[in-house]
Design a protein around this nucleic acid. Sequence first.
DNA 1: GTCAGGTTGTTCGATCATGATCGATTGAGA
DNA 2: TCTCAATCGATCATGATCGAACAACCTGAC
Lengths: 386, 386
Amino acid sequence: MTSRQGPEQGAEPAGKSLFSLQRREKLMDELRAHGSITVRAIAAELGVSELTIRRDVNLLAVEGLVSRVHGGATLPSPLDRTASMTRQQTNRYSIGMVVPSLDYYWPQVISGARAEADERQAKILVRGSTYDAADNRQQVQALLTTQNINGLIVAPDTTGEAGRELLRWLNSLPIPVVLAERRSPIEIPAHRLEWVATDHAFGAGMATRHLWQEGHRKIGCMTDSNSPTSAHVVRGWLQALGALRIPAAQSVNEDSAHVPTSDRAEHFDRILQLCRETDTTAMLVHSDTQAVAFVQHCVDRGVDVPGSMAVVGYDDEVAYLAEPAISAVRPPKQYVGRLAVQLITARISEGPKRPVHRVQLNPDLIVRDSSLGGPRSSARALEDSL
Amino acid sequence: MTSRQGPEQGAEPAGKSLFSLQRREKLMDELRAHGSITVRAIAAELGVSELTIRRDVNLLAVEGLVSRVHGGATLPSPLDRTASMTRQQTNRYSIGMVVPSLDYYWPQVISGARAEADERQAKILVRGSTYDAADNRQQVQALLTTQNINGLIVAPDTTGEAGRELLRWLNSLPIPVVLAERRSPIEIPAHRLEWVATDHAFGAGMATRHLWQEGHRKIGCMTDSNSPTSAHVVRGWLQALGALRIPAAQSVNEDSAHVPTSDRAEHFDRILQLCRETDTTAMLVHSDTQAVAFVQHCVDRGVDVPGSMAVVGYDDEVAYLAEPAISAVRPPKQYVGRLAVQLITARISEGPKRPVHRVQLNPDLIVRDSSLGGPRSSARALEDSL
DNA sequence: GTCAGGTTGTTCGATCATGATCGATTGAGA
DNA sequence: TCTCAATCGATCATGATCGAACAACCTGAC
């Protein structure tokens, strides 16, 4: 509603008179930028009398937003004895949240975010989107224009030129932005973006090492390149193979992204065939739903799990439902949501002086039956069973 | 983010006068960093009379925030009978902290950690060590056996086999461990180690891009391979060169680690010579102390800074002291300490269910005079001046 | 037009922060 | 234990800053 001028008011000290609210905003900006202000300097800069500024400072001090000192004000300091003891104000922020899916993975992230927001008396406004940059932007835009939000948590598509452009745009928004389960590239244009993401490469590595420790010496990987997670899983798997001195070139690495459900059985048969040919006795399967289907297929084909084919799923939504129950890597989804809210609220209250935070969380490995015991009678069993 | 900052800012002696509250905060910072202060030193540093400092100390002593001693003040000691008995209940946690240096870089990290610990009613026990794995271990061992600590913050040597072994040992300790300004490798044996570290590569990249934007097209790098930071600085610099399409192979990249002070002038002359030969008009210099010496040398040799040689220092301890004042990358040291304490206390109270956190913080670029304006008359001026 | 309510500016005595002086006190070394 | 230099605190002077009271101004409602 109020049209703001440029970042610096520039040449007109006494130009358009600001409303008191804008004055106080400006004052807080200066304060956050420099850590302190003098009444005199601000009064001169805004072209108002010092008394007016003093009144503003008093007002802000009552709200606990600044500490009054003789001659000016500083950021609230614990040394400030006059600080009101009623710390927890009606500090309610509105935080927008745009996630690419409302039925897979993200509900738990949202739940974590909501829990944290409750504790901080903030409100979360969620919008579902897709895994597509254009739609991401549309949803964010909708939040920005229809709601009055103080910060944004978003899990955008970061791939391709559209993804990079989207990141640049997010980086330039006037409100703080935190990416969830996404990283900003090292490029400068996104230098303000903070993020919290699960270290999926670590998780994949952990799963691979677990299979190795159980006795498997050929470990394959089944991916779903539809998901942005898959690239990290493959990276972690390859890294682990390297560390374990397993030749990656001969390892089974199949993608199921574009296999229609009708061809799934055939697809799995081909993978089992590949495993037999390469003596592969264990598979890391991205998306546990896929893992459940794969284990089911193995059981149907008489392939013993885990005796002839050990399976670790990546992600842990339904892995426990299979028979046998599937070991799975479990990303700390609740914590991702919680942390995103923590980052955004801290950023809103501390301003740009706070350094940009980028957090990785390690997933857990939940060991169930599908990966225990090591290969039994090696590839023979698998061969016999077919 | 990049912030423009006048010459007066920070801790310079005769700079802008601070408010009393800020003085007291600064005083507490110093106190937390070093454990004690002298009235004289603080008075000199802040450019105020000793009486003023004494008054501040009295004030803080009345609030129980310091213990007065003859000539200065110390952190509140239980032996101090004058302390108001309004103290809260006993500390909830004791946190050990082992840092490789007590006079460079780390005091500010300690100060941040102590400040955060105060707010969480925890106690920090600091031990100075060296940049050597064996001594790191000894100091940690000493803390473990002589004190009853609930968690450990440590900045160990992570290089070589000794470093890896040390990390394995730290990972296996029965108490939570957080690394400060160090990362654990992707290796599994350190999978429980959490860390918080400045993204020095990002900082170096930011500095390089800043120089590029100022018009420099050949940007060199001077390192100090004694420091564990240097490798990251070089990495960030090279990355940025790549992104800016500056050929790295022909770029000046010199190390000053093993140059004795006596040969320094000669060493700098050689670097200037190299810059002339390669048309290099800007240098990123690791450790701002080195940058100060380098700028001094340039001025002595009649090389105009920033006209003929622009300089950005890495680290911002003394960069503002040079003439001209040196632009510098400033790591968020206070925040590193704060965050380390946050991580360790959260880990202690939430237990192993909490996922492993690994946090990177971005440094700031403080732009001063030594890098502004771009190359003037290119390499000619540099050549003429020699 | 007028009046109420809000915001801003001016004046001036009160208050505050700081430094200088100078005895009183302290404590480390002889 | 003694001594002496360093440190401390009471007091005052000075200049800057603050706040109460009132005046001026703007705005919108009736």
